[in-house]
Nucleic acid binder design. Structure first.
Length: 418
RNA sequence: GUGAGUGUGGCCAAGAGGUUUAAGGCGCCAGGUUGUGGCCCUGGAGAUCGAGGGUUCGAAUCCCUUCACUCACCCCA
């Protein structure tokens, strides 16, 4: 038997309401903040991600779906959202639009990893990007949008973590002192940290090995090393967050997996699971546009894992959802009635009411059972008697109340029930 | 890539070498007096017990291999 590829899943009809709710809310909140939707292709020239995310990151090195197409072009399935949006910004000359350009996206993301809970090979993200404004207010705006959106989903037991990782001026000196600090404790470090020490020093900070924790705790803090401009930006950003009514926790060990981040980085994490189940992650990326051959343009954004957010919503047990919309199941007995049923179904649908024919050839009892389990609000019964009389029986499922309706009269009667 | 656990009808799941022609529940289909649902009752369909090989008179049950899934690490949403 064929099954969905490893790490992927089907969103079945029964799951759709939650997904549609998410999309609708995300679009609404984005619109409230002035963000317009953008859709980009599922794959890009492999170099878009290699240069954007960084050649030596895990994501590019071992987690991308990269393939050569029949024309010999090297393509990569989108492993994150930002690089594609930046590519589109450059390609379409969006620097000629009023800055910043505010955009959001909802799309699948592909990463070749071993799946586990909350981690898939194809997952989906809601993300936003604000391009062309270096001001700290934009940082706070992006963070607030993410927070408000989760709030609107009922997810209030979350933590907002922020940090600054400086820029090309102040990060190198910090990395130096970090390496010096770790160098003193080389004997107690785990294998991974020994590797990170030279390869990806910032990553040392989020090692989870117990033995490394004392070293992490005594490590220098990036925000103490910020250059004048970065420090000012950091201060201003925190002021803006406070003005927005948010109370972030400064997390000195917060770094991110993409090379393109500068200054502000942030995550929104659930109360349990912590940073291994990050729901939202993002930050500022003032060098990315240039990296992709655009003119120097600052940017700020985040990506939100839809599966993780929906899982958290599900865990809340808030079934929600308003009254079911009207739905008429048409029970029909006999060939003539079946044809009349088709005509009635068409009229109902034209009137904007869902109409489904019960399986023909079954007993009325079976057809009514079907109506009930299919979630019908009404059953329209068409049998030989009704055909003769020229009037059908409309039954309200909630209380069994029945009345006669003329051909074509069902829609008005259903509407009348509210 | 590393480590651990689990694979029995669509779903949940008994069984642990021989009354198994593999329980039970959910779901599905049918019927419960002549054309009416949700509860209840009865019946029915549906499984080469993940796959391949081996041990044995005999394997869902033991051994090997393999695949898949789950969880954790790495990393990330």
């Amino acid at each position: 038997m064929f099954t969905s590829p490893r790490g992927t899943f089907d969103v079945l009809p029964g799951d759709q309401p939650a997904w549609r709710m998410f999309e609708r809310r995300a679009s609404e909140v984005a619109a409230l903040f002035g963000y317009g939707r953008i859709d980009t292709p599922q794959f890009e020239d492999a170099r878009v991600f290699a240069r954007g995310i960084g050649e030596v990151t895990d994501i590019v090195e071992k987690e991308t779906y990269t393939f050569e197409d029949r024309g010999g072009d090297l393509l990569t399935l989108r492993p994150e959202g930002t690089a594609s949006v930046v590519r589109a910004y450059i390609q379409h000359g969006m620097h000629n639009l009023p800055q910043p350009v505010r955009m959001f996206y909802i799309c699948p993301i592909f990463r070749y990893e071993r799946p586990q809970s909350g981690r898939y090979r194809q997952h989906h993200q809601f993300g936003i990007e604000a391009l062309g404004d270096a001001g700290a207010a934009v940082d706070a705006e992006v963070i607030e949008l993410g927070w408000r959106f989760l709030e609107s989903l009922g997810l209030t037991e979350l933590s907002l973590l922020v940090n600054s990782i400086g820029d090309a001026n102040c990060r190198p000196p910090y990395v130096d002192s970090l390496q010096t600090h770790y160098g003193k404790h080389e004997g107690t470090l785990c294998e991974d940290c020994l590797r990170r020490l030279t390869r990806n020093p910032l990553r040392l900070l989020d090692c989870k090995q117990e033995g490394c924790q004392p070293v992490v705790e005594t490590a220098p803090h990036m925000i103490d090393y910020l250059c004048g401009e970065c420090a000012a930006h950091w201060e201003e950003m925190n002021g803006c967050l406070a003005a927005a009514g948010l109370s972030p926790r400064i997390e000195h060990t917060l770094v991110r997996g993409f090379d393109y981040y500068t200054r502000t980085v942030f995550e929104i994490v659930p109360p349990v699971g912590g940073r291994t189940s990050t729901m939202v992650g993002g930050g500022r990326y003032d060098g990315l546009v240039e990296e992709l051959d655009g003119r120097p343009t600052p940017g700020m954004g985040f990506g939100m894992g839809i599966e993780r957010a929906l899982e958290a919503v599900r865990a809340l047990g808030k079934a929600s959802d308003a009254d079911a919309p009207p739905k008429v199941v048409i029970a029909n007995l006999g060939a003539e009635a079946a044809l009349a049923g088709i005509a009635e179904a068409s009229r109902l649908r034209s009137a904007g009411i869902a109409a489904v024919l019960a399986p023909a050839g079954r007993s009325l009892r079976a057809q009514m059972r079907y109506a009930s389990s299919a979630g019908a609000t009404h059953a329209l019964i068409i049998g030989e008697n009704e055909i003769r009389a020229g009037a059908y029986v409309l039954r309200r499922m909630s209380d069994g109340e029945q009345r006669e309706v003329a051909a074509g009269g069902a829609a008005a009667a259903v509407r009348g029930d509210g």
